[in-house]
C-alpha cells in the first residue's frame, strides 16, 4: 500500500515536472542558451537510442553517428529536392535508417564483442566517406544548406510557427518524451527483458530459449531508427547538414554520453547528453583548448566514474542500505544487552 502511494506520488511529480518543462523558454531570453538546450534534446534522443543497444543489450556500436547522419541526409535531400516537410521526411528517415540498421545488425551482430566494435567502426567510416564524396547527392564537403523549417502548426485559432530557437523547443521536447516512453515500453516488455538477459549472460539467455541473434538484431534496428529520427530533427532544426558532423567523433560522442551518464538508464542517457553538450559548448570560450579539455574530461570521467553518473547513485543507495542494516543490527545488539540487564 505504502509502495503504491509512493509510486503514484512519484508519477504525479514526474508528470507535473514534465509539463512544467514546456514553460522553460519563458524564463530564457538568450537565444544561444535555447539553442544549447535544443541540442541537448536532440542528443538525448541519440543517447536513448544507443543506450538501447549498448546499455540494455550489451552490444557496443561505434557507428551510430552514421545512422544519425543517414537520418539527417535523407531528410535534407528529400526536403531540398522534393520539397518535403518534416512530417514527411521524418518517417522516411526513420524507415531508411531502420532498414540500414537491420542490414548492418544482421551482418555485424554475429560477431563477438570486440569485432562488432571494429565492424561498426568500419561501417561508420564508409558512410562518412560516402557523405564526403558522393557530391551529386550529398553536396560533398559543403553539405546541404537551406533545409526548410517545419511547417507552422495550427491548433484552432492558435498558430505555432517555427522561426526562433524558442519555437523548436516544445516540438523537440515532445519527441524526447516520445523517445522516453518508447524506451520504457520496450525495456519493461518481455522483449526488453530478453535483451537485458542477453546483456547479463548471453549463453544463459540462449539456454533459456531466447532467440539471441534475432533479439539483438531487432534491438539494433530500433536503436538505429532512434538515431534516424534524431537526424531528421537535427536537419530541420539547424537547416544545414555537413559531413564532418557525422564523422567518427559523433559516434564517440554519443557513446561517451551513454557511458558518462550511466549505461542502461534513461535518466543517465539524458544526463550524459546534457553534460557533454554543455561542457563542449562552455569550452567555446577557449577555442584553442576546447577539445583538449574535452578529451581530458572524457578520460578522467571514465577512469574515476566507470559506471557513469547513475552508477554513483547506485553506490550511494547500496551504502545507505548497508548503513540501515548496520543500524538495525546495532539496535538489536543494544536491546539484547538491555534484556540481559
Amino acid at each position: 500500500m505504502e509502495l503504491i502511494k509512493r509510486s503514484a506520488f512519484r508519477k504525479s511529480v514526474l508528470l507535473l515536472g514534465g509539463i512544467a518543462l514546456f514553460l522553460l523558454p519563458l524564463g530564457i531570453v538568450n537565444p544561444y542558451f535555447m539553442y544549447i538546450i535544443n541540442l541537448i534534446l536532440i542528443y538525448a534522443i541519440l543517447a536513448l537510442g544507443l543506450d538501447l543497444i549498448v546499455g540494455y543489450t550489451g552490444q557496443v556500436s561505434v557507428g551510430h553517428g552514421a545512422f544519425f547522419g543517414i537520418g539527417a541526409y535523407v531528410a535534407a535531400i528529400l526536403a531540398k529536392n522534393l520539397g518535403f516537410s518534416l512530417w514527411l521526411t521524418l518517417p522516411f528517415s526513420i524507415i531508411i535508417t531502420a532498414v540500414i540498421g537491420l542490414i548492418i545488425g544482421f551482418i555485424g551482430l554475429k560477431l563477438i564483442e570486440e569485432y562488432l566494435v571494429m565492424a561498426t567502426l568500419a561501417f561508420g567510416t564508409i558512410i562518412w566517406l560516402v557523405f564526403l564524396n558522393w557530391t551529386d547527392l550529398t553536396g560533398g564537403p559543403m553539405g546541404i544548406a537551406g533545409i526548410s523549417a517545419p511547417p507552422t502548426i495550427t491548433l484552432g485559432t492558435l498558430q505555432f510557427p517555427f522561426i526562433q530557437y524558442h519555437d523548436y523547443y516544445p516540438l523537440l521536447l515532445i519527441f524526447v518524451y516520445l523517445g522516453i516512453l518508447i524506451t520504457r515500453l520496450i525495456i519493461k516488455s518481455g522483449f526488453g527483458r530478453a535483451c537485458t538477459a542477453i546483456r547479463d549472460d548471453e549463453l544463459a539467455a540462449q539456454a533459456m530459449g531466447i532467440p539471441v541473434f534475432k533479439t539483438k538484431v531487432i534491438m539494433f534496428t530500433i536503436s538505429a531508427a532512434f538515431c534516424g529520427a534524431a537526424g531528421a530533427l537535427y536537419a530541420h532544426f539547424l537547416h544545414v547538414v555537413s559531413p564532418e558532423t557525422f564523422a567518427f567523433g559523433m559516434s564517440v560522442t554519443i557513446l561517451t554520453m551513454v557511458m558518462i551518464g550511466g549505461q542502461g538508464s534513461i535518466t543517465g542517457a539524458i544526463i550524459g547528453a546534457a553534460i557533454l553538450t554543455v561542457s563542449s559548448e562552455a569550452l567555446r570560450e577557449t577555442p584553442e583548448l576546447r577539445m583538449l579539455i574535452y578529451g581530458f574530461l572524457i578520460v578522467i570521467m571514465i577512469m574515476f566514474f566507470p559506471k557513469g553518473i547513475m552508477g554513483l547513485f547506485q553506490i550511494s543507495k547500496q551504502r545507505l542500505l548497508k548503513k540501515s542494516i548496520q543500524v538495525e543490527k546495532n539496535v538489536v545488539e543494544k536491546e539484547g544487552l538491555s534484556y540481559e540487564q
Partner: peptide, 28 residues
Amino acid sequence: MRMRNAPKLNLLIAAIGISIVLQNLAQY
C-alpha cells in the same frame, strides 16, 4: 594500468579520449 579491472568498453572510451587529447595537444 589503472583500469585493468574495468570493462573493455571503458578502456575503449579512455583510449579515444587520449587520442582526442593528444591530437589537440599537438595542434596547440
